[in-house]
Amino acid sequence: MTDPDRPVAIPAVPRPKDRPGRAPAPETTSTYRLGQGPLRLPLWLRAVILACCLVEGLLLAAPLLGLGSARAVSLMLGGFWSPLLGGGTGLYPGQGAVMFLTYGLLHAGLLHLAMNMISLAAVGRELTRMIGAGRMALIYLASQIGAGAVFALMQPQAGPMVGASGAVFGLAAALVGHAAITLRRRRRSMAPLVRAVALILGLNVALTLLMPSIAWEAHLGGALTGLALGLIFAILPRRA
């Protein structure tokens, strides 16, 4: 019986006899670890996606249970309200601080949820390969806080603001920043990166024009925070 955690040596495939006048090809072996598949999303990221889906599912089901005001209550308790940072009084102690965490778990419907969760999974998988799960979690949290802070600064009387897009833009910007440093070090073309940045910016502008209710200020705040951390982590070496 083979131990699944033990590397298995796979012999090289036999080759035809070498032609006269050519040096014989060296015999090589490769190593394959059983059970090693595509990179999975970090546990914390899967938990965030699951929490967002559960919250939206409960809010969609609430009217069927006679709780038609559930979404309004969730916005009042968990949405981001800029006036709370300008001296406003919350509905419970510490709401002005707690809302920086809770607003990212709320969404304005299935389309809003789907767009953010699909983007989060796609960007999160690639960024995990670059910087690891721990650093990515820090970027996600910082970007969500930065998104709320910039939104409050630019829209001091607005609210409620909900959604994980600020944090998602933070991860995307961190990916761009980290990739830019890496490509520059390896002296590779940055054309694909420029196209990716142009696509992200174009999508954000298009969504803002088509859906005026989108909080582009939060996107900006999250992106600036994520970009700064992505550049920092690209410079700092990773610990083994």
Rank of each mutant, 00 (worst) to 15 (best):
V55H: 04
G109K: 11
L120Y: 06
R71N: 01
A25M: 12
G104D: 02
P83Q: 07
L111V: 15
T28I: 15
T31Q: 03
L65F: 14
A72V: 08
L60Q: 11
S119C: 12
G57A: 01
M99P: 01
S30P: 00
V73G: 00
M76R: 14
M117R: 01
V55G: 06
A62F: 05
L39G: 00
I118D: 00
R46S: 12
L113S: 05
A23N: 09
P42Y: 05
P38A: 09
T31G: 00
A51V: 13
P63D: 06
L75P: 02
L111E: 13
T102M: 03
L75K: 09
I49Y: 01
L50T: 15
L110S: 10
W44Y: 06
L106E: 04
A47N: 02
A97M: 14
G35P: 00
S30V: 12
G37P: 00
L101I: 10
G66H: 05
N116T: 12
P26I: 10
L67D: 01
L101Q: 02
S69K: 13
T28E: 15
L113H: 04
V73S: 06
N116G: 12
P38W: 07
G87I: 11
I49R: 02
L34A: 08
L39I: 11
W81Y: 14
I49C: 07
L64W: 13
L75A: 10
G37T: 11
W44R: 01
P42T: 04
C52L: 13
C52Y: 02
P93A: 15
A72I: 04
A25F: 14
V73E: 04
L39E: 02
E27Y: 12
Q36E: 13
L60K: 05
T29M: 11
T89G: 07
P83L: 09
R46M: 10
G35H: 10
A51I: 09
S119Q: 08
A61T: 11
L84E: 02
L105T: 08
L75F: 15
A61I: 14
L50D: 10
Y32R: 15
L110W: 11
Y103Q: 07
L34D: 00
R40C: 01
A23K: 14
P93M: 09
R40Q: 10
M76Q: 14
G104W: 08
G57P: 01
F100Y: 15
N116R: 07
L85A: 14
A25W: 13
Q95Y: 10
P93C: 04
E56P: 00
L110A: 14
G37M: 03
A121R: 00
R33H: 13
W81D: 10
G37H: 08
L84V: 09
L58Y: 00
L111Y: 13
S119V: 07
A72L: 07
S30I: 09
L34F: 09
A121C: 03
Y92S: 08
M99T: 09
G21I: 11
M76F: 06
G96Y: 05
I118P: 00
